[in-house]
Amino acid sequence: MDALTATLALLRLEGMGPGRYWQLLDHFGSPVAALLSLPESLLLKLPPRAQTQWREFSRCGEQSALIAWALAERDRCADAGVELIHCGEEDYPRLLAETSRPPPLLYVRGARAALQLPQIAVVGARRASSGGLDNAHAFAADLAGAGFAITSGLALGVDAAAHRGALKAAGVTVAVLGSGVDRLYPRRNAALAEEIVAGGGALISELPMNSAAEAANFPRRNRIISGLSLGVLLVEAALRSGSLITARLALEQNREVFAIPGSIHNPLARGCHRMIRDGAALVETSADIVGQLGGLLAEPQADTPSHRPQLERRQLHLIDALGGDPRTIEQLARDTGESAGELLALLLQLELAGLVEQLPGGYQLTPQGAAYLQHAH
């Protein structure tokens, strides 16, 4: 029996988890020794099913059901093209190994070499605003172009936009799952997962094959996302959200945390603002992140006037009037002197140019619109 089989068997015991696993390793020095000599004091803390499994192993050894499961799991991985990376192996991600009680095993589908690239996590709300999705996509594309792998959780919303931004830039992206790597969640992102693998990225999980996505899995997934990364970019997040948990875990793991500020009227900006108050770096462009992390590989290309549409004087005046916060038609009419009908025509033109978006009860600048405003001044 080798260390990988012993680790699979130990983690198969219900109630074991990384915490107890590393306690055993600290005491016994190897997973094989820990499995063979599981202390009675620890065994009694595990659920009855785990106690029965281990006692059967202690009687039957390598003929036990526990070892049979571990060997079958290795076969399932081989059949599915999934690799197992054991903590302590040379290509186990270095930053993740430095965290407290890292996952003893990683299941990897795709390019395991992707885990050796410098990574930046991009996380945020599942129900993000269109501006938030645009920011996630644009920042991820720029950062991937600067040589970073983009790490996220394959969720709907910001996660998916970040993965797609990296792929659009022909970069590498890593998806950390709260399910088995062969049981994708959400199913709506199954095609995206295949694009990630085809693009030289990877799907990873610490959970066994065929594990379902359960609520308890996602905090564990979030600690892996932050642990893999040099820094975490928070795009949009409510005050009570998994994305905010990921950012806080990153701070605990001594990672850099970056947050994009938003309107005070946007509930999804509140998590970002809280993190900025708690020490996250406020960022407005991807260059802010690249500069702080040492400018690895290349600077992202800056937007230039040739990439921006040419606006007429009245359109520019309206961009100025919109500023940084959502505005109603009445407010814009007061500030610009235009009639409601004229404003609607101008706003439609700016929407088609990708500079303005409509909200319930008003309008606001998109990230491209905000960049245009910044360059105009």
Results as ranks from 00 to 15, higher is better:
138 A>R: 08
270 R>I: 14
356 V>G: 04
112 R>D: 06
298 A>H: 09
9 A>C: 04
210 N>K: 08
203 L>N: 08
69 W>K: 07
14 E>H: 09
172 V>C: 02
203 L>C: 13
22 W>I: 01
260 I>G: 03
234 L>V: 15
102 P>F: 01
217 N>L: 04
324 G>H: 15
198 A>I: 08
353 A>C: 11
152 S>H: 05
22 W>N: 02
160 A>N: 02
204 I>D: 02
271 G>D: 00
53 Q>I: 07
18 P>G: 02
43 L>W: 04
113 A>P: 03
256 E>K: 12
124 G>Y: 03
240 R>K: 05
247 A>V: 10
24 L>G: 02
266 N>E: 10
333 A>W: 12
126 R>G: 01
113 A>N: 12
59 R>I: 10
331 Q>A: 13
334 R>T: 15
187 R>I: 15
371 A>R: 12
75 D>E: 12
35 L>R: 02
344 L>E: 15
187 R>F: 13
359 L>Y: 14
196 I>V: 10
375 H>E: 13
189 N>T: 06
181 V>P: 03
137 H>N: 15
31 P>H: 03
122 V>L: 09
93 P>I: 04
128 A>K: 07
170 A>N: 14
120 I>R: 14
357 E>M: 14
27 H>Y: 14
121 A>V: 11
157 G>P: 06
364 Q>T: 15
12 R>P: 01
375 H>Y: 06
217 N>Y: 07
49 R>I: 09
123 V>L: 03
149 A>G: 13
202 A>V: 06
180 G>E: 01
230 L>E: 11
198 A>F: 13
208 P>K: 00
266 N>L: 10
31 P>R: 01
83 E>R: 10
138 A>K: 09
252 E>T: 12
50 A>N: 07
186 P>Q: 08
275 M>T: 10
317 H>W: 11
